[in-house]
Simulated assay, not measured.
Amino acid sequence: MISILLNIVITAAQVVGGLISGSLSLLSDALHNFSDVLSLIISFIANKLSSKEASVSKTFGYKRAEIIAAFINAASLIVIAVLLIKEAVHRFLNPQTIDSTLVIWLAVLAIIGNGFSVLLMKADSKTNMNMRSAYLHLFTDMLASVAVLIGGLLMKYYQLYWVDSVLTAGIAIYLIVVGYDLLKSSFNVLMLFTPHDIVIKDIVETVCKIKEVKNIHHIHIWQLNELEVHLEAHVEFYENISLSEFDEVLTKIEKVANDEFNINHINIQPEFNRKDPKDIIVQD
């Protein structure tokens, strides 16, 4: 909430300053700051929703809310970046005189405000995709403000007004790079793709080392969010074991899955001489 309020103030100041000074890089930074406000609001709401309890109509609760927020924020970064590049090219071909003093002071204001917000979110950004999306918005905006400050100094002392357009394009390209990485990560989670650090072949080999297990097949692995990785599979046994014996084997599977693959939710269907496809991956 502190970051949201700070960015509203910074955005308003940069819009007014950009219009008065004629600086495109300052306006682009203001646009990026405005996207920060929206992304922070989305992240804030998603964070609150994710803590709501599950119910009979929402058995997973709202745990995916933060992943959706990360996806929206990443997509917005890329869209904004493309618009900035388009405008930067136009301004580069048609350079304008800019009030560099105003640009410099507003860039300093943005650096201080965004720098404080970045420090507030740094710790949580390491463990939460939603917080990382908000952190990236703020961190890239702080870097953008540094670039605007450098551009303002070059314009003030060397009258290099084309620098404004070049800096805008550079900021936009950086936004695309960081935005794409986050977009891909959140998209993979939403599409129920297997986490990139889990090799299904290794899971099969590990589980099959348990002496009672004949094979493991029909496997699905997905992330619900950044804290929960789920595995469901069919496990065929050599013998027609009892439920109590199955529970013992299940405990072993849960242990290796958690210890070696960081999978913390297991759902196993036990089988004995069942006539079903034994492929590791079966299309439902």
Rank of each mutant, 00 (worst) to 15 (best):
I2A: 11
N7D: 07
N7Y: 01
T11M: 07
A12V: 15
V15G: 01
G17R: 01
G17Y: 05
I20G: 06
S23G: 03
L26G: 00
L27T: 10
D29M: 08
L31F: 13
F34M: 12
S35N: 10
D36R: 02
L38I: 15
L38W: 06
I42G: 01
I42D: 02
I42Y: 10
A46F: 02
K48Q: 05
S50G: 06
V56E: 14
S57Q: 12
T59W: 06
T59Y: 06
T59N: 14
F60H: 09
G61I: 12
A65N: 08
I67M: 09
F71K: 11
N73G: 11
A74R: 03
S76K: 04
L77K: 07
I78Q: 04
A81V: 02
V82W: 01
N94L: 08
T97P: 00
I98W: 00
S100G: 03
A107R: 04
A107D: 05
I111Q: 05
G113M: 01
G115S: 12
L119H: 14
M121T: 03
K122Q: 14
T127M: 00
Y135P: 10
Y135R: 10
L136E: 02
A144D: 11
A147L: 13
V148H: 08
L149S: 06
L149M: 09
I150A: 12
G151T: 11
G151D: 04
M155Y: 09
K156N: 14
Y157G: 04
Y158L: 12
V166P: 01
V166G: 01
G179Y: 01
L182F: 00
L183S: 05
S185A: 14
F187K: 13
V189C: 05
V189R: 06
L190V: 05
F193T: 12
P195L: 06
D197C: 04
I198R: 03
V199I: 15
D202R: 10
V207K: 04
V207G: 04
I210E: 08
I210P: 03
V213L: 04
I219L: 03
H220A: 05
L224D: 02
N225V: 09
V235T: 13
V235R: 02
V235H: 05
E236S: 13
F237L: 15
S242N: 12
D247K: 14
V249E: 11
I253S: 08
E254D: 12
E254R: 08
V256A: 09
F261H: 11
N262K: 15
I263R: 09
I263M: 06
H265F: 05
I268D: 11
I268T: 13
Q269M: 09
Q269A: 10
P270D: 11
E271K: 02
F272M: 06
N273L: 14
R274N: 13
R274Y: 14
P277T: 12
P277D: 13
K278Y: 14
Q283E: 14
